[in-house]
Computed example of a mutant assay.
Amino acid sequence: MSISTCLTKIDTPFLFVDKTKFDRNVLALREKLAMHDVVLRPHLKTVKSIAGAKHLLVDFDSPATVSTVKEAEVFAGAGYTNLIYAVGIAPQKLPRIQTLLNNGINISILLDSVAQAKAVVAFCQAQHINIPTLLEIDCDGHRGGIQPDDAQLIEIANTLHQGGAELRGVLTHAGESYDCSSEQALIAAAEGERLAAVIAATRLIESGLPCPVVSVGSTPTAHFAKNLAGVTEVRAGVYTFFDLVMAGIGVCQPEDIALSVVTSVIGHNEKKEWLFIDAGWMSLSQDRGTRTQRKDCDYGLVCDSNGDIIPGLQVIGTNQEHGIIATVDGSKLPTIAVGTQLRILPNHACATAAMHAGYYVGHSDQIELDYWQRIQGW
């Protein structure tokens, strides 16, 4: 039985993971970073699944990254013990972090301000606990973080170290790499990310402060880093699935994308040459991450039931439960019967996956599909 036959047994729309592509993507980055002799700390915010994590992490003590405390709690409950919560800490979340630490979970938090550091120190002193803490470094002006040469870096570090929290190191994320449009720009983004983290770490060490962890990472920079000297670990998340944004900046090819939304044709508008599907923004998401790229993929590229891209077709519009497919290259809309299953490649894998409770997973010689339930909530 073929995968496409297996998929026809499931009511659309739903998420499908091509396990062959998934495994290939996972192995490729693992092998690349092994050549640099650095640790890979996968970001589980993309997969968000216990069943999926076992294919990324070698064992329960393997390093991993999470983006919500709920993820940390669920992965910890499944036995995973080595986590970074890579979002700036809000003080009201600290009791949940304490519970994880008390249960033997090696979890670090992240912050980038004196106010956050003082809140963490106050909590540590009140609860008689040391919370491992990383300082977020701004390597490209993308979002938050401390500039590596900012005087506040040492002030924040001293607040933590002298106040009783565990200063564990620095962490940075080259978010602007998602806007790169050439290999040279991606290589430069990776080096800028590395350099910012290493400069910050060096300043801490020269000030007599501990900095055992120097953490960098994004999927683009992880794939294009040429030099990781001074780095202890690399984080990446969407590399497992890839998506059209990653393809648009040259990190992968559309054929490498392992995640798709399986949908059914539900009608036609022959006058407008539109094809209607039962996947709207509730299943595809409203993410339009490719609209500023050289190729705007609208709401996703269209594949046949075997996962082969149909040239010229895109989802040009979405309503809540309707998607509209049309040609974007001037060609005539092909005849596709009502009830036909298609697959839609997503702009942003994380956003599309967030619209679903789980994934159906399979490869070409698999008789029955697996199901990976996703973690939801914060």
Score class of each variant (00 low, 15 high):
Gly267Leu: 05
Met246Gln: 13
Phe242Pro: 03
Gly362Trp: 02
Leu244Gln: 11
Pro13Gln: 04
Ser264Trp: 04
Thr68His: 14
Ser364Phe: 05
Phe22Ala: 00
Ile367Ala: 15
Trp281Met: 07
Val17Arg: 01
Arg374Ala: 13
Gly362Arg: 00
Pro220Gln: 09
Gly88Glu: 15
His142Arg: 05
Leu110Lys: 02
Cys180Gln: 06
Thr327Tyr: 03
Ile324Leu: 00
Leu40Trp: 15
Ala78Ile: 12
Gly237Tyr: 04
Pro311Cys: 06
Gly141Asp: 09
Asp365Arg: 08
Gln184Pro: 00
Ile97Lys: 05
Gly280Asp: 03
Lys70Tyr: 13
Phe224Tyr: 15
Asp61His: 14
Ile309Lys: 05
Glu255Trp: 05
Ile137Gln: 03
Thr5Trp: 01
Gly175Gln: 02
Gln293His: 15
Asp23Ile: 05
Ala190Thr: 08
Thr99Asp: 11
Met246Gly: 01
Glu155Leu: 14
Gly358Ser: 05
Leu171His: 00
Val58Leu: 12
Thr12Gly: 07
Ala90Asp: 15
Ala247His: 08
Ala190Val: 12
Gly237Thr: 01
Ala115Met: 08
Tyr359Leu: 13
Ser364Asp: 14
Glu31His: 10
Gly237Ala: 06
Thr133Ile: 09
Ile310Gly: 09
Pro13His: 02
Gly141His: 10
Ser207Lys: 07
Val234Thr: 02
Thr81Leu: 15
Arg291Cys: 13
Gln98Pro: 04
Gly192Leu: 03
Val245His: 02
His36Pro: 00
Thr68Tyr: 14
Val38Cys: 12
Ile187Glu: 00
His268Arg: 13
Val302Arg: 04
Val328Gly: 00
Gln320Thr: 10
Ile277Phe: 04
Arg41Asn: 12
Trp372Cys: 04
Pro42Asn: 12
Leu57Arg: 13
Thr335Met: 03
Val214Trp: 06
Ala86His: 09
Pro254Phe: 08
Ile10His: 05
Arg24Cys: 12
Val338His: 10
Ala354Ser: 15
Asn82Ser: 13
Ala86Arg: 08
Arg294Asn: 13
Ile325Phe: 03
Asn227Val: 08
Val216Glu: 02
Gly358Lys: 00
Cys252Phe: 01
Thr352Arg: 06
Ser215Ile: 05
Gly280Phe: 00
Gly77His: 12
Thr5Lys: 10
Leu244His: 09
Pro212Thr: 10
Lys54Leu: 08
Val74Pro: 00
Asp256Trp: 05
Ala86Tyr: 08
Glu176Cys: 11
Tyr178Ala: 06
Arg96Tyr: 05
Cys211Asn: 01
Phe224Ser: 11
Glu191Ser: 09
Pro254Gln: 11
Gln125Asp: 07
Leu15Gly: 03
Ile249Asn: 00
Gln152Val: 11
His348Thr: 03
Phe241Leu: 08
Tyr299Gly: 04
Phe14Ile: 06
Pro132Ile: 07
Gln152Cys: 13
Ala196Phe: 06
Ile277Thr: 01
Ile344Pro: 02
Ser67Ala: 15
Gly358Cys: 07
Pro220Glu: 06
Leu167Cys: 10
Ala185Glu: 15
Ala353Cys: 06
Gln116Ile: 08
Val214Asp: 03
Val198Arg: 03
Thr352Asp: 12
Asp329Trp: 08
Thr65Arg: 03
Thr327Leu: 01
Glu136Cys: 04
Ile375Trp: 02
Pro346Met: 06
Ile324Pro: 01
Ala353Lys: 02
Trp274Asp: 09
Pro254Trp: 07
Gly79Lys: 12
Tyr371Trp: 11
Ile325Asn: 04
Ala28Glu: 06
